[in-house]
């Protein structure tokens, strides 16, 4: 037994392996049937906890969400199937449209701005110097902070009277807005705050991608007389297309689910200008306990996110070829 395995390890089976005749090309290593069965048992045993938790807290909830969205379940009392009533209700729900508009506004500002700042700072730091590594650490610091701490800090920075924003604007004779207390400025302020809080992580991912772009391509482009912008457009961007796809997908999925900042800083106000989709779902599901309706809302948001992720995949594919 040991000798068979021994030779099998070296890649030259001394005796023909047991089991079915080798119709397909023989795998690199063919342990005897008993070990193989043992491996299968161990394999499932080792992965059992993640799989069970996955079933309980992902697979079942997904199915349950679909079923719930067809009911008027509200935790208390009886519930019944209402068919697609929840979905038709959504289309007539003015709050849904407000939340959707706010979320779309946030996403449209946050995703491009976040990518531009992250990629810009990655380009700035894409050099092998001690100073660049120190700056990388400094740029990353806001990422470490929680959204709550970030919100709390910005609550102070954005204070209309004492906040640094308006004080600095005041130096230039500009009377700054009341930021979080003004419906026109609350969402842009949250966008800027979120970019500040998150760009460091994407910057580091971009840096990983930038280091994979072969340097001789730049050299070749320079010889061909390409200027800095042309090098960026025709060497850098194609070179990091996979990373760009990853980052933009994560940004889109994250942006459509924005919640923390709006919940902490503005409670959806002023004038509902910062009620986001997840905020509205949270409000329906856990404040009004309309869990059936909340599930339908989350499915609609899920579909919207899928559509935009697919569009994003298309756009990135086009850029790649």
């Amino acid at each position: 037994m040991t000798s068979i395995m021994d030779s099998a390890v070296r890649g030259q089976p001394a005796v023909p392996p047991t089991g079915p005749p080798a119709a397909k090309p023989p795998p690199r290593l063919l342990p005897p049937a008993t070990t193989r069965r043992q491996q299968a048992v161990n394999g499932w045993l080792f992965i059992a906890v993640p799989v069970l938790l996955f079933i309980a807290f992902f697979a079942i909830p997904i199915v349950a969400a679909l079923v719930l969205s067809l009911t008027d379940y509200a935790i208390i009392g009886d519930f019944e199937f209402v068919g697609l009533d929840n979905y038709t209700r959504i289309f007539g729900d003015s709050f849904f449209w407000i939340a959707l508009r706010n979320t779309a506004y946030y996403t449209a500002l946050y995703v491009p701005l976040g990518i531009a700042v992250a990629l810009g700072s990655a380009l700035l730091l894409n050099r092998d110097a001690r100073a660049a590594r120190i700056f990388r650490t400094l740029f990353y610091i806001p990422v470490v902070s929680s959204t709550v701490a970030t919100a709390s800090i910005w609550f102070w920075l954005l204070n209309p009277q004492y906040g640094v924003f308006n004080v600095v604007l005041g130096w230039f004779g500009i009377d700054g807005p009341a930021w979080l207390y003004e419906s026109a400025w609350a969402m842009p302020a949250i966008v800027v705050m979120s970019v500040w809080a998150g760009f460091g992580a994407n910057m580091v991912i971009f840096l990983g991608g930038l280091q994979g772009v072969p340097r001789d391509l730049y050299e070749a482009a320079r010889i061909d007389g390409a200027n800095a912008w042309q090098q960026f457009r025709h060497v850098t961007l194609p070179g990091i297309s996979r990373v760009m796809f990853l980052v933009s997908t994560l940004q889109i999925i994250g942006a459509f689910q924005v919640f923390d900042q709006a919940f902490i800083l503005t409670k959806g106000g002023p004038g509902n200008s910062t009620v986001t989709m997840v905020y509205y779902i949270f409000d329906r599901g856990f404040d009004s306990l309309e869990m059936g309706y909340a599930s339908a809302l989350s499915f609609v948001l899920f579909l919207i996110i899928m559509v935009f992720s697919l569009i994003n995949a298309r756009v990135n594919k086009v850029g790649e070829s």
Binding site: A65, Q257, S295, F302
Partner: peptide
């Protein structure tokens, strides 16, 4: 599953 937005399982996970 890592690509699925977390919001979809929020309500049912609470119920589970």
């Amino acid at each position: 599953s890592m690509m699925v937005p977390g919001v979809i399982t929020m309500v049912p996970t609470f119920l589970v």
